[in-house]
Nucleic acid binder design. Structure first.
Lengths: 329, 329
DNA sequence: TTGTAGGCGTTATCAC
DNA sequence: GTGATAACGCCTACAA
């Protein structure tokens, strides 16, 4: 690949002059400019960003660490992140931690080695001490994505509030018992339960949590549940994937949606509209989250000092469809 | 971030010696080695790969261009690509073309600027002249992923053969009319139709192609179809996403699966097992495809000359579930 | 307006 | 074994 020095030789000027022309920096003799530009075009000159990085101390690279990009929620985010980064001339170098702290640490080391200008990370364990230490000693501007933590700047969706919205909605649909599908260690769970407690007397005996991901087991549990509770049951699954699974199990068991079971998912993926009955879900605005994360990161990059700690939550939005409410077609 | 030169100063040796220690290259005095290693550890030294790239003419970077990584099929591939690259010490820098040739070209230019060691690309238009020109003039080892083309090395799933398998399967289920959901410009279509022609007399009047992605329109077309054709109909959708949509429409119309309609998707995504009735689909082995692409690329990187043109097709595998065949539970 | 000189952090090639 | 020294391709002074 052709270099500035070679162009300089071919056009009979000095290398810095070529640099000036190609970067449109300062005034140069129009004749020379043309000669240099022509030569550059002819040989499809592409500046060596590696060399530029070394000299200028900027790599124009953003490191991104996902837990698992094969999850389409993160894949979606990556698309927006790349898009937003590109607007400012940055490219992204992408890693997956596989929800494993050691791999995450490895990713961070590689990222250091590439001297990226900034880091966006979906931390595996955003509140552990070792992670927070790592972030303290990381001399790279960084923003956490989708997770809330005091240890660093972050952009996240307020899961507690989202869970709350779902609780309210299901209660308003006349549900008499409730099921949360997922783990307790989840803002959605927290908000969901909190709101239900406020609105439902004696929630304890009308609330169940299901953790299993196994279809047979799910089927067994739900079958038993609906034998015992004749009333309408509100089911909230921590993501659409799981909600779709429940959807299938309910259909198989012959339980009517939403008459007997009001079902709500999370992520508002494409599938929600395609299922029948269509799936109510909570939408997180990925485009917005990605854009804000990148913009904040660029701010930090451009103002290295004097940055307050910062975090921003983005409201989730409940998208109501047939699986949770009776709707006119 | 600490550099070799600084370590050299602190330990009272020369910078090249530090380099030798840190790279474990040649013999060095054990005392010095320890002193240097200790200092490096203490300051969490991370080699500057940018500088190393400039000097050594290797960036240890693979450029990847997707059409749209928010499609979970590609997201899945990226995960495996990154995994496989990492095994050999490479990192990946990721781009999305958005199915737009101009953006693809921009990505390629940025990739050139980063002097990546290799390129993996899902081309937007693998058989156009301008793309083939671009690849000819690209002086970077490259492999095309998921698309077949004579213009460069490639790893792809044989869609024609896959379509053929689906045709055979649906015919064996006793279907009397057939629908392909997608466009003609697709190996799946080609294989599907070819096989049906061989097995079904007078296919013409029993074959329909549907291109629309609009649910209402789909519903209208299918409704009319099933009013006219009382017999069993085989439906093959070009991806799972579309198949799930059809699945929903059929349910809504009250058409029984698989009794009246035998449905087959493509990609074998997680959703197939979760739907009820579960969805028959064609599995592409992403892990295998990704691994082969990376391995081939590394071969090319390591043997710059004397590489034959090469391409490799990977067999698709039909995963039969309830949506297409009567199955005992 | 243009060229010269130095430096970015490595690796590689020499001598010593 | 170890230390100079040049080189990678560019940028940023500074000098002419």
């Amino acid at each position: 690949m052709i270099t500035m020095t070679e162009i300089a030789r071919m056009t009979g000027v000095s290398q810095p002059t070529v640099s000036r022309v190609l970067n449109g920096n300062q005034a140069v003799n129009p004749e020379i400019r043309e000669r240099v530009l022509a030569c550059a075009r002819e040989h499809n000159f592409q500046p060596n960003v590696i060399a530029r990085s070394l000299a200028g101390n900027k790599t124009m690279l953003l490191g991104i660490v996902f837990t698992d990009i094969s999850n389409s929620f993160f894949a979606d985010l990556e698309m927006y992140l790349e898009q937003e980064a590109k607007k400012s001339g940055y490219s992204v170098i992408v890693f997956n931690s596989g929800y494993d702290w050691n791999r995450e640490k490895e990713c961070l080391d590689v990222i250091r080695r590439y001297r990226v200008d900034g880091l966006i990370i979906v931390p595996v364990e955003e509140n552990s001490e070792r992670f927070q230490n790592e972030m303290q000693n990381l001399d790279i501007p960084a923003v956490a994505l989708t997770r809330r933590t005091e240890a660093m700047d972050c952009v996240y969706v307020d899961h507690v509030e989202a869970g709350s919205q779902v609780g309210r909605h299901l209660q308003e649909q006349g549900c008499e018992s409730y099921i949360f599908v997922g783990t307790e260690n989840d803002g959605k769970y927290e908000g969901f339960v909190k709101t239900l407690r406020e609105r439902v007397a004696d929630l304890g005996s009308h609330f169940t949590k299901i953790e299993t991901k196994n279809s047979e087991e799910l089927s067994r549990i739900l079958k038993k549940h609906f034998e015992n509770f004749p009333g309408k049951t509100g089911i909230f699954a921590y993501n659409d994937r799981r909600a779709v699974q429940i959807h299938g199990v309910l259909q198989k068991l012959g339980i009517e949606i939403p008459k007997q079971a009001s079902l709500v998912g999370f992520d508002n993926t494409y599938i929600c509209d395609f299922l029948y009955p269509s799936l109510t879900s909570v939408a997180q605005s990925n485009a917005e989250m990605a854009a804000r994360a990148v913009r904040r990161l660029l701010e930090k990059i451009n103002n290295p000092r004097d940055m307050q700690s910062w975090n921003e939550s983005i409201q989730a939005r409940l998208v109501i469809r047939q699986s949770s409410a009776d709707m006119e077609e």
